[in-house]
Design a protein around this nucleic acid. Structure first.
Lengths: 234, 234
DNA sequence: ACAAAAGTGTTAATCTTACACCCATGT
DNA sequence: ACATGGGTGTAAGATTAACACTTTTGT
């Protein structure tokens, strides 16, 4: 039995990075093809003998040189038949987090340029990529409240104030520092190091790190990670 | 620029129904093709000029004659290159809820047979469909606690005890009837009718119905739907 | 009168919120 | 000494959890 079908499968990756109190999205400008000189998400067609995950990782490597901390499938876009003007493409979008301080972007094989853009100040992007980014941002916001994925946007060792700011920034909320600290520490999933941050002013602050195995135990014991920030940002 | 790719796109639907305190999954047995005489999820290949949603709805119609109350994309399965032994297939799985008391299944065009199976007593199913069903069940369990999708498994007018049982059954938890009722009513999203159920024994019970526009208002006002059942089932 | 399911309130415990002052460092 | 950000506790209010008896109907 032969199936006639003329639809291509692509993957796209929405990569978030966090730096200087700003949430950024990684965009690339391609050298070749239909996307020449347009900003777009990292992505491309899936090879016949390659899993979807492998395809995303390959594109991330080829187009940005980045190694992500977190990667999950976001959504498959296939309800707009003409999203790509060339032919029909169904795109499986992935959602990735990276500690962006660690990386210098190197536009590799296929990309002329790769750059971070603040989520609140994106350039025009190709196809329906703006819509994909919006969905990814919503997922990030909601997932941040019930999974400890914020740590994947921070360096391995971080200041409490960085974690606070990350939550404030991404959730667009104010925060009560005391309550936030109490709540986070109550989970017992982050621990002090004996090192201190090197901020220029103010009292030196301890560096903390996320303990993933304690988190796994916490979950196995039937507890729930949950961080709600209730006040609205001015 | 021509893209060489030899991957087919399919959709599959996991349809849940609820009846007699049992959560059921809809499976079909196909007349033709590789799946002949095996139980499988409703599904098939996407046509070139058809959205993914249209494809699911078409397959649901062709293979079961069911009209669902709720439909959302679940996950795209494309990491097992050999999940279909014939050729590579990437399948976009959808998750659907139906008030199964309303329907008599009619195996239509493509299906020899269509039947409900209790989630805890499934027959062997084709391909990786067992895995897909497991994922869908997890999604149902978690979504039930934060979205009012339980109503999509019940008749339009239902007894409070039916709603209670639905939550107990699907979440595999015990329940405190008083606390559950208080919590659900506190949201103000369901309302009494002046009708009564027709159980054979016991005191007659009022029928209730879900008011979707009140729910939308509730959400717009910034409230959160949340139902947790804490005690474990014996 | 009994069996079966429906309906209903109170209290203790827990969790959440609001709130402000002192501390350690660099300049 | 002052500016900067770090670190900390308590009390009021809200939410959740535990718990059992009365009501209405059919038989």
């Amino acid at each position: 039995m032969e199936i006639q079908q003329n639809i291509k499968i692509a993957v796209d990756a929405i990569v978030f990075g966090y730096n200087d109190n700003t949430l950024n999205v990684l965009l690339i400008k391609q050298k070749f093809g239909a996307l020449k000189n347009q900003w777009a998400l990292v992505g491309g067609f899936v090879h016949d003998q390659e899993t979807l995950h492998d395809a995303v990782n390959r594109e991330l490597k080829e187009e940005s040189g980045i190694k992500v901390n977190y990667l999950e499938q976001l959504y498959t876009f296939g309800d707009d038949i003409d999203r790509d003007p060339r032919f029909r493409v169904v795109s499986v979008a992935y959602f990735a987090l990276v500690n962006s301080t660690k990386f210098t972007l190197k536009a590799d094989t296929d990309a002329e340029d790769a750059q971070w853009f603040p989520i609140n100040n994106l350039p025009p992007v190709a196809f329906d990529h703006a819509q994909i980014i919006t969905l990814a941002y919503q997922r990030l916001q909601s997932k941040l409240t019930y999974k400890p994925i914020g740590f994947d946007l921070l360096p391995r060792e971080f200041l409490f104030s960085e974690l606070e700011n990350l939550y404030c920034t991404i959730l667009e909320k104010d925060i009560d520092r005391r309550n936030f600290r109490k709540k986070v520490l109550s989970f017992g999933i982050i621990e002090e190091t004996d090192k201190f941050g090197n901020k220029k002013s103010g009292r030196p602050a301890k560096l903390y790190k996320f303990n993933r195995s304690k988190y796994n135990q916490f979950i196995k014991d039937g507890f729930h990670f949950q961080i709600k920030l209730d006040k609205k940002k001015k």
